[in-house]
């Protein structure tokens, strides 16, 4: 740990900036402090005196902190900062809600207009609901990281495990639904699986009905499995991207204090 770790942590708490900007400023300050300390030691000061003198020389007043935040804030953050505190939270929520709503509506439209969902499986609705949940959750985290630039690692990690968990639930639901549909399609005729397995000859009175059942099953199951795969991929991709972003933030923060 650097001899100035506590000082840097104190500055970090006051400096409300997104990563990696905050860590870059802290890194710059850290090595300037260490240089000043070494220079003071070379000038004949005792260790304690040298550290205190360096701290005094590089003390960041509230005014300096405010100025640094003003320089490094994103345009959106600057705009929000001009609003009163209560309005800020309300506005942030409204923006988040609008973004999520737009995502949900766009995704819903894409699902509804797709041909293979016309004759859909009963399992498609819960799978789609999971997909929307994953989208909303992922969008919320990405919004926090990239738009609001609020880099509280603990808050960002909160609930992130839901993405892979929901991907797993989605897979189980999809595979379960696939076999249940198969059972249902087979059982709808005579005994389970029987009618789909027995190959009927052309001209046989049941052949057309059997073909309709098989086609219906294939259509439903392919629609279901395609959606399951897309939702699972989306969940894992979002989880990976968010996790990597959080890791970068963590790395940037810890590198300053080492």
């Amino acid at each position: 740990m650097s001899g100035f770790s506590q000082d840097l942590q104190a500055v970090s708490r006051r400096l409300d900036l997104p990563q990696p900007r905050k860590s870059r400023i802290l890194c710059e300050l850290k090595y300037d402090l260490e240089d000043a300390y070494e220079h003071n030691i070379a000038a004949g000061m005792h260790e304690r005196e040298a550290a205190e003198s360096a701290r005094r020389a590089f003390a960041l007043s509230d005014e300096v902190i405010r100025e640094l935040m003003r320089i490094h804030r994103t345009p959106l953050r600057k705009l929000l900062d001009r609003l009163p505190g209560g309005v800020q939270t309300g506005m942030e929520r409204a923006v988040l809600l609008l973004m999520s709503l737009a995502l949900v509506l766009l995704s819903a439209r894409a699902v509804i207009i797709a041909d293979f969902h016309r004759n859909s499986s009963v399992f498609l609705l819960p799978v789609a609901a999971i997909g929307f949940y994953i989208l909303a959750r992922g969008a919320e985290k990405l919004f926090q990281i990239h738009v609001m630039r609020r880099h509280n690692v603990q808050a960002l990690r909160q609930g992130l495990f839901m993405l892979p968990l929901m991907a797993a639930v989605n897979c189980i639901l999809g595979i379960g639904g696939y076999f249940l549909e198969l059972y249902h399609s087979g059982g709808a005729f005579m005994s389970p699986m029987f009618d789909m397995i027995v190959i009927r000859q052309p001209g046989d009175p049941g052949a057309a009905m059997q073909m309709r059942h098989i086609t219906g099953y294939l259509s439903r199951s392919s629609g279901l499995m395609t959606t399951v795969l897309l939702v699972t991929l989306l969940a894992l991709l979002l989880w990976y991207v968010i996790e990597r972003s959080i890791q970068k933030i963590e790395y940037a923060e810890t590198s300053v204090y080492l």
Binding site: D32, F58, S61, V64, L68
Partner: peptide, 11 residues
């Protein structure tokens, strides 16, 4: 104060 350099440099 050396700390006052940072806002000037960053600007």
């Amino acid at each position: 104060n050396h700390g006052t350099l940072y806002p000037i440099l960053h600007k």
